[in-house]
C-alpha cells in the first residue's frame, strides 16, 4: 500500500510567541509543524511493522518555497519521497480551498492511507482531514491515538465528546492522528544529510488540475477581515522561582488575600 502524509510548514513555536509593536511576528524561523511528526512516525512504524506491505511513504505539502525545509525535515524522519504544491495562486486559501488543493494533489498519488497531524500549530483548525476526505470520497476520523492496521481495515481509537470511541474503517481512508499516538524519533545525522539530496516533486495548480479561481483568495468563501486585539485582561502577577522559600510564602500570601485558604 501507499501512505501519504500531509505535512505543513509553520512558524517556529519559539518565534510565534514574539510580539513586535504589539503584533505577532510571523516572520523568522519556520519549521515542520510538530504535530505532523506524529503522522510521519506512524507511517514509518506501519511500514516497519510489516503487517501490511507499505511500498512507499510520500509526504505531501502545500506552501511557499520556504516550505522546502520542512519537507526535507519530513524526509529525514523517514518518508521516501515528497510532493510540494508550490504556487503563488494558493496563497490566502481558506480551510476549504486548502483542503481542495491538497485533495487534488493527493489524487495523483492514489494513496491507500492519508495521515495528517491533529492540528497545525498556526492555523489550529483540526479540520483539514475532514475536507480532504470528502473530496477524495474516503472515510475519515480525526484525533486518532491508536491505530491497528490490517490489510484493508484500520481499527482506530480516539477521544470524542463522551469518552473514547473505537471505530473500524476500511481503507483507503484519511486519518488525523493525535499527539499521544506515538513518540516520534529523532532523525540520524545521516538521514538529515541524505534528505538534502532527495528529489522533491514540485507542482503547480495546473499540474493537479486546478485553476486559480478554485484556490487562494479567489477560491475562498470565508473572508477574513481586520483583526483586533481582544479586550485587555488585567495582567496576572508573575513569580520567578529562585528555589527559595520566598516563592511559596508569596503564593500562600496571595491565596490568603483571596480567602482561598480559609
Amino acid at each position: 500500500m501507499k501512505i501519504c502524509v500531509l505535512v505543513k510548514e509553520v512558524p517556529d513555536a519559539a518565534v510565534q510567541k514574539r510580539l513586535v509593536n504589539g503584533r505577532m511576528d510571523r516572520g523568522g524561523e519556520r519549521n515542520l509543524n510538530p504535530y505532523d511528526t506524529h503522522a510521519i512516525e506512524e507511517a514509518v512504524r506501519i511500514k516497519e511493522a510489516g503487517v501490511v506491505t507499505v511500498d512507499e511513504v510520500v509526504a505531501v505539502s502545500m506552501g511557499p518555497e520556504s516550505a522546502d525545509r520542512a519537507i526535507r525535515k519530513a524526509i529525514s524522519l523517514g518518508v521516501d519521497r515528497a510532493v510540494h504544491l508550490c504556487d503563488e495562486a494558493v496563497a490566502g486559501s481558506d480551510v476549504a480551498a486548502t483542503g481542495l488543493a491538497l485533495a487534488k494533489t493527493l489524487e495523483r498519488e492514489s494513496p491507500d492511507l492519508v495521515l495528517l497531524g491533529q492540528q497545525s500549530d498556526d492555523g489550529e483548525c483540526y479540520t483539514i482531514g475532514a475536507v480532504v476526505a470528502d473530496h477524495l470520497k474516503m472515510p475519515s476520523l480525526t484525533q486518532v491515538i491508536k491505530m491497528d492496521v490490517k490489510v484493508g481495515t484500520l481499527t482506530c481509537e480516539r477521544q470524542a465528546e463522551y469518552g473514547y470511541d473505537t471505530v473500524e474503517i476500511p481503507t483507503p481512508a484519511v486519518i488525523s492522528v493525535g499527539d499521544a499516538i506515538n513518540e516520534p524519533r529523532y532523525p540520524s545525522l545521516k538521514a538529515i544529510m541524505g534528505a538534502k539530496k532527495k528529489p522533491v516533486d514540485k507542482l503547480t495548480i495546473s499540474d493537479v488540475g486546478l485553476d486559480a479561481s478554485q484556490v487562494g483568495e479567489l477560491g475562498s468563501r470565508a473572508r477574513w477581515f481586520d483583526s483586533a486585539a481582544p479586550p485587555p485582561k488585567a495582567a496576572g502577577e508573575i513569580i520567578e522561582d529562585e528555589d527559595t522559600n520566598e516563592t511559596v510564602e508569596r503564593i500562600v500570601a496571595w491565596l490568603d488575600e483571596r480567602k482561598l485558604l480559609s
Binding site: 476549504a96 483542503g99 481542495l100 483548525c125 468563501r221 470565508a222
Partner: peptide, 18 residues
C-alpha cells in the same frame, strides 16, 4: 468540527471554526 468541514467541501462553502 468534522461535520462542518466535510460540509464545506461538499457544498463549496466557507467555513470558520473556534
Amino acid at each position: 468540527f468534522e461535520i462542518g468541514a466535510g460540509l464545506a467541501a461538499r457544498m463549496n462553502a466557507g467555513v470558520v471554526m473556534e
